[in-house]
Every structure is written in structure tokens, then in C-alpha cells.
């Protein structure tokens, strides 16, 4: 059951203030993922303090890198249930995981940061993993 919106607003804001586009409906998800091109990072936000409390600042660090995905999107697991399920339907070979981060290139998963890769890690370590994936899969010339 979703938490009261007032409890999660700051967690949404932590991500959207980075310029990340939040998707809250199935229609919004389809509009971004149905006809993909280039690189897209999808950050699955979560209330969990242990993992998400490190993942959000890690995302901020990673997005300050010189090479970033063409598009950065987010959904909030446990809150925007339909939108999150829709995102997961696009990567259905992977098990649900939140928080997590999925890097797509032309709609194909090229890097998946599962919750178990976030747990117990520092924001710096998580960011380093994301940055390495950006450098490997994203084009500097297409960086925002």
C-alpha cells in the first residue's frame, strides 16, 4: 500500500530536482519507452531508507559526470504502482528490484543496478558504477 504522499514528496524531489523526468502513469511510461532511441536511464525510486538513501545521492553524483544518458527517467516503486509495473514490463527478463537503475540503449538493457548491488554501498561507490556504465554505453557527443 502506498505511503501518504506527504511522506514521499521529499524523496521524489530529491530526484526530480536533478532534472529527471518523473513518470507517474502508464501512458507517460509508454510515451518514453515504446519507441526508444539512444540511451535512457530509468531510476526506480523507493522509500527504503537503507538502499534508496544511498541511491538518490549516487544518482545526483553520476548525473554530474561529463557523459550521461540522453534521457533520464524515474518512477516511484510502491507509490506509482501502475507506472512502475509498466516500466518493469519493458525489462521483464529482470526481477522487480527497488531501488534500482536501468540503463537502456535503443530499448535494450545494457546495465542493471539491482537493489542488492546498492545495499550497504556508499553513494560514491554506486555513482562510480553508474559512471562506468555511462562511459561504456553513452556517447559523449550526445550528452545533455
Amino acid at each position: 500500500m502506498p505511503y501518504p504522499e506527504m511522506m514521499v514528496k521529499a524523496m521524489r524531489d530529491d530526484v526530480t530536482r536533478l532534472g529527471v523526468k518523473e513518470l507517474r502513469t502508464v501512458e507517460q511510461v509508454d510515451a518514453e519507452l515504446a519507441n526508444p532511441s539512444g540511451t535512457q536511464l530509468i531510476f526506480i525510486n523507493s522509500v527504503c531508507g537503507c538502499a534508496a538513501g544511498a541511491a538518490r545521492p549516487a544518482l545526483a553524483m553520476a548525473l554530474s559526470h561529463s557523459v550521461v544518458p540522453d534521457q533520464v527517467l524515474t518512477v516511484f516503486a510502491g507509490q506509482d504502482l501502475d507506472a512502475t509495473a509498466r516500466v518493469r514490463s519493458y525489462v521483464s527478463e529482470y526481477q522487480p528490484s527497488s531501488p534500482s537503475a536501468i540503463l537502456l540503449r535503443d530499448g535494450e538493457v545494457v546495465h542493471f543496478v539491482h537493489r542488492h548491488m546498492i545495499e550497504g554501498q556508499s553513494p560514491d561507490a554506486i555513482a562510480a558504477d553508474l559512471i562506468a556504465a555511462f562511459d561504456r554505453h553513452c556517447s559523449p557527443t550526445m550528452a545533455a
Binding site: A10, C48, G49, C50, A54, P57
Partner: peptide, 20 residues
């Protein structure tokens, strides 16, 4: 509440709490 860096909601739990 601002950015929840390092926030732990249940620090009284086992060291492995929340870890897969």
C-alpha cells in the same frame, strides 16, 4: 526533509537488516 543522503530509518536493527 532535504536530500536523504545516508538516511537509515531503522538503525536499531541487525547489521544485515535490509541486505540481500
Amino acid at each position: 526533509m532535504t536530500m536523504s543522503e545516508g538516511m537509515v530509518l531503522h538503525p536499531e536493527r541487525h547489521a544485515l537488516h535490509g541486505i540481500t
